[in-house]
Amino acid sequence: MGDVTRLRHALPLSQDSNKALTELDSAIAKAIDVAKAAGLPQGLVVAELHGHAHAQTHNMVKA
């Protein structure tokens, strides 16, 4: 887990990191809006996001 950076130690974020975070947040919000407009149940959207968060956490822990 040596490659994991704790944000409180990395603050303030660089402009590149801040831009990437803003773009990630925007892309997620847009994807959620598209899924809702397509009629996906909110629980399924949440489950999908939770699954990706779990997978990313697993990848960080095993590294």
Rank of each mutant, 00 (worst) to 15 (best):
E23T: 05
L7A: 14
P12S: 09
P41M: 07
V46H: 03
S17V: 09
G2W: 02
D3K: 14
L11T: 13
L49E: 07
L49R: 09
A20N: 13
A63T: 09
L13W: 10
G2C: 03
S26R: 14
V46C: 01
H54E: 11
V45S: 02
A29S: 10
G51W: 06
K62A: 01
V34M: 09
L11K: 02
A37M: 07
T57C: 10
V34G: 10
Q56W: 11
H58S: 09
V4Q: 12
E23Q: 13
A37Q: 11
L49W: 07
H58L: 01
K19I: 05
I32E: 00
D3Y: 01
A31R: 12
H9K: 06
M60G: 07
H54R: 04
L7V: 08
A38H: 06
V34H: 06
V61P: 01
G2L: 04
H9F: 12
A20Q: 12
A37E: 08
L40C: 07
A27D: 10
D3R: 12
Q42N: 07
H52C: 02
S26M: 13
N59M: 05
A55Y: 02
R6Y: 05
I32P: 02
G39M: 04
A37P: 11
L11W: 08
K36Y: 01
K62Y: 05
V34W: 03
N18V: 10
K62G: 09
A47E: 01
A47Q: 06
E23A: 15
L49F: 03
A53M: 09
A31F: 04
L11V: 11
L40W: 05
L7H: 06
A63R: 14
L40E: 06
E23H: 15
A35C: 15
A63F: 08
G43A: 10
G2P: 01
I32K: 00
K36M: 04
A29Y: 03
D25E: 14
V45D: 08
H9Y: 14
A31C: 08
G51T: 00
S17A: 08
A27I: 04
A37T: 04
D33T: 09
H54Q: 06
D33P: 03
I28W: 07
A63D: 02
T5F: 10
K62F: 02
N59A: 09
T57P: 04
I32L: 07
R8Q: 01
V4T: 06
I28N: 06
H50P: 02
M60W: 11
V61A: 13
A47M: 00
V61D: 10
S26D: 14
L11H: 03
H54D: 14
K36V: 02
A29K: 15
V4S: 13
